[in-house]
Write a protein that binds this DNA or RNA. Structure first.
Lengths: 290, 290
DNA sequence: AAAATTGTGAAAAATTTATCACAGACAGGT
DNA sequence: ACCTGTCTGTGATAAATTTTTCACAATTTT
């Protein structure tokens, strides 16, 4: 019946193109919790995927099985075969790829970085940083370097929705004085600086510090010299099997920060988001979500 | 009903003493290839273990389940929890923080996203994409949306070092015609489009496609409609405990891609990197690495 | 030998699966 | 904007399978 060389997961993915919307929705739901969800009763699966019972029945046959029980039987066979499989010491993330494939090596490194970084983080400092960044009474400046300005902008884009009174400081240093002129006691600078540490960034930090601003620093495991001036420092591990460093862990921290800050004033954020949505609707920039 | 802290396998082993011969035989058979055999019909299990049907029914109740279906449901739950991996189970990432802290919840979600995304990726498609993107004979266009343009830029910044002949298409659509005028057969577009999918992006994709360009798409698990035009699609899970979506998994893919592409022509890349370093040194933009 | 355990065969009960027809929703094309 | 055809959910029903339970005989254990 089935080609022994491919898993049912593969087969579903492969057929994904030929499926209709509801069927695809169902297929994704199956893959979501693979293979557990496929082993329960058909009715439960349908409800889980928010599709109707006939849709499940139809798709299963479309996939080439005699019926739902047949499908389940194959799932069990697969599970049975897999259980006796070897347990890799380093986890294989992309199972379809050999463990030496860059997909697996890279992911492994990133997970490792995350584990390491989170293991050393100080939650209280984190909470403190959130509070500082959430406070709309103090102006918020966000600054990044050559590569990290993408992270800075990512943070900026989100904070823009969450609170007013913030600035994305572009990296060209001749525009700085304008920003700094207005910066005062208690204003907050979020600075991204990973190796190789930029002289410019240090200058900016010094100026900000001199004006009595608070500094939240995102840096790497070796820590930018700015950390001496910073009130709060987050250092991420960034080493990966590549000629470059990874920003993934830092992004994770940034996203967590965004989520936490948003949580501090959900009412206000929600309002602002709704306004934003409405504006997008009006400009027809986005499709309606289907 | 069940003590959440122990697996069904544990529970069976523990009760093994209290069971009679036939029941023990059955129990061992269940453990033999666990949990697959327990997920099939009762009759099959009985035949598998060489015991009678009533024996199965009796034992299941003896173990404390309401009936065989109840037993199966618990098995599925367990499998479901396990599928998300031994790591994701209940791991506390930031040990200094309570497990309910956003740091842990968010990280958990991201790891989960990575796991799912990598689990469903097609390594061959990935390699194929790398090859396409590495080829300097074809012009490379990189495009992102409102939020994702940060990812696009991240990719662009790195590819700029790796190869010549590429363009970062800014999101303002009135500049597109200039870019597209030069785009031709076989040129490559890397497009980022996650929900909410932008109409602009679709238009651009259509134009590019019409001119015979190839499209590599980075999208989310629901897949931007552009995927119909794309030669290769990467979909990431992006759900996190936040009002926004996570870009971390997509960034991971992008970074892996960068690493892989760089590996395809390491000689050339190295040269270009050295040139770049020299130029930075000359402009004194960076500190010497200490 | 007595007590407990197990299998047999069957039948009833419960659940699950497979289908159907139809109506509404939706997408694509004109 | 308006068709047109496809897709999807509803509700009902029939079919099939699975589960549960029985009583009793056979077997094993104590």
């Amino acid at each position: 019946m089935t080609d022994a060389s491919q898993t049912i997961s593969d087969r579903i993915q492969q057929k994904l193109e030929d499926l209709t919307r509801a069927e695809r929705q169902l297929a994704l739901s199956i893959l979501e919790n693979y293979p557990a969800s496929g082993l329960g009763p058909l009715t439960a699966l349908a409800k889980d995927a928010n599709v109707s019972v006939p849709t499940v029945a139809r798709m299963v046959q479309k996939l080439g099985y005699k019926g739902y029980p047949d499908f389940q039987a194959e799932l069990r066979d697969e599970l049975r075969a897999k259980a006796t499989g070897p347990i890799a010491k380093h986890e294989t993330w992309a199972e379809a790829a050999p463990s030496g494939h860059i997909l697996n090596r890279f992911t492994d490194a990133v997970i490792d970085n995350i584990r390491h970084t989170l293991g050393h983080i100080d939650p209280q400092a984190f909470d403190e940083a959130c509070k500082m960044i959430a406070n709309p009474d103090k102006h918020l400046y966000i600054v990044g370097g050559r590569i990290t300005h993408t992270l800075a902008e990512y943070l900026f884009l989100h904070m823009q929705v969450i609170r007013p009174n913030l600035t994305h400081v572009q990296s060209t240093s001749n525009t700085w004085p304008h920003y700094l002129l207005n910066a005062g006691e208690g204003d907050v600078f979020v600075i991204f600086d990973v190796r190789r540490y930029e002289n410019n960034m240090m200058k900016l930090a010094k100026m900000a510090h001199a004006r009595g601003a608070r500094i939240v620093l995102f840096t790497d495991q070796w820590r930018s010299p700015i950390h001496q001036l910073a009130d709060i420092t987050f250092s991420s591990r960034i080493v990966v099997p590549s000629a470059w460093d990874s920003a993934a862990t830092t992004l994770l921290l940034v996203e967590t920060l965004i989520s936490a800050v948003q949580g501090l004033d959900w009412g206000g954020t929600k309002e602002r988001m709704e306004e934003l949505e409405e504006m997008f609707d009006r400009t027809k920039l986005f499709r309606k979500f289907t």
